[in-house]
Design a protein around this nucleic acid. Structure first.
Lengths: 259, 259
DNA sequence: TATCATTTGTTCGTATGTATC
DNA sequence: CGATACATACGAACAAATGAT
């Protein structure tokens, strides 16, 4: 709990609490200390605590109930509604068919551990080891940026023969997994929230715009294999799904005034 | 500038300023009065003014620059990127498989004309006549609300034999269209933005949460037939897409901590 | 039912720092 | 440099919701 950097106090406090949540100190659904307790523990005033909590609230990390307290939002068991869409069959892979996306900076590969979000999604416990890889890419024609994160459990990396170098394109990963005898399944879900400070700068977001979050879980013969998460400014992006009757390829898109 | 209702002062102030902006008193790009000026004009303290401005900021209506002032945001929406997801072959319809959604109020049916958004999406010109229908529904287990809007061109209503009463469930509509010999295709896109004040109240959204917008266009043998748009708070909803290999039904969902 | 302690919500006053012009 | 404007932070007080007594 170093509150020493030349940054706003409430931001430091938000960062500290955010870290505690992601580290599992406050698991999903848990009750955070009261505002006055936090105020005392960190030696700041209650307005400052409230400002920090407000930030975490817009990030969708925390839910506050008057008279009760602040709770860590639980995306899995909490009041989350799932709008199920049609069941479909995959045609191709995750694609950049026109080669319009380019890297802004070199991908960052690292070792990480599953947290309360990624763990359950991958069917793993919290704190298990995995490879991580972050990419910051940019869409040439529009300049829109996107962050792509992949989380690859060690077991998956072994199964696909990736060794210690999981940094490679998605298509290659999928091919390696299928070559290893996996029959792939995808599950994608789309949601949105207000960005974190990091995302605001990395994605160059204008004020007041949410981030669109597209999470894709690749499943194999016996459970989830890997997780990809794409984040991009919602004001300049949409996720498109085309659903056509069996056996017939997708036709022209119905949007005319697009290009 | 009535600040009399039994609502929080800063909300009333935000509403007042929002009204002035929408009334054109402060056009896009205009400089708002300074915080102290507003404080004096409305007879409230500066922290209260700041709270009101913060609310307008999260709504995306206002941008604040330190040392300069508060400006009406120029909603110049630039070009958008489409993240194409690869999908083929439909299995089911738009569905509420568990019957968990109920109507909050009676559906509102009306006649409307296509605008710059709905027109191109339906392959029509702007200003053509169509039926419209708005529903406000609620998810029983969680209380989450959603607004569903349907736009049905007259030609489609005729083709499906709907007459002047297009107010009926989606599944029935789809069935009628298929019975009329249409081979249906769906195209869905998901995006998000900050809610309008109307949406905030109708959907009972907490501050700082975006709305998720799911637009579905149903296509037939010779072009788009109808448009559905679902809007719901992103903090409690996600759009789910399951993609499985051909011929095999979708398995268990990879999220474990769900049920 | 009524009361009470706890917790968040709202509002004020005040002071200081920092960016802009 | 000084004036203006926003950013941050503290302290204080009361209102309103909640849950337990």
């Amino acid at each position: 709990m170093d509150l020493v950097r030349p940054d706003a106090l409430y931001r430091q406090l938000a960062t500290a609490i955010r870290g505690d949540i992601q580290a599992g100190e406050y698991p999903p659904g848990a009750l955070l200390p009261s505002e006055s307790a936090l105020s005392e523990r960190y030696g700041v005033s209650r307005p400052t605590v409230r400002q920090a909590l407000a930030a975490l609230r817009t990030e969708g990390l925390v839910i506050v109930r008057r008279g009760k307290g602040s709770f860590v939002r639980d995306a899995a068991t909490g009041p989350t509604v799932t709008l199920d869409r049609a069941i479909v069959r995959s045609a191709g892979h995750y694609a950049d068919p026109h080669g319009e996306w380019s890297q802004v900076e070199e991908p960052t590969a690292y070792r990480t551990t599953t947290d309360t979000t990624t763990g359950p999604a991958l069917g793993m416990d919290e704190g298990e080891a995995a490879f991580g890889c972050d990419r910051l890419i940019s869409h040439g024609p529009t300049g829109t940026r996107a962050m792509v994160r992949m989380v690859i459990p060690f077991a998956t990396a072994d199964a696909a023969g990736l060794g210690n170098d999981p940094v490679r394109p998605q298509a290659e990963l999928y091919a390696a997994l299928e070559a290893a005898g996996q029959r792939l399944t995808w599950h994608e879900s789309v949601t949105a929230r207000m960005p974190t400070p990091d995302e605001t700068t990395a994605l160059q977001l204008p004020e007041g715009t949410p981030v669109l979050i597209i999470r894709r879980i690749t499943g194999g013969n016996s459970g989830p294999l890997l997780l990809e998460e794409t984040r991009t400014g919602a004001e300049a992006a949409q996720a498109d799904y085309v659903i056509t009757p069996q056996g017939r390829p997708a036709g022209r898109k119905p949007r005319a005034a697009k290009d």
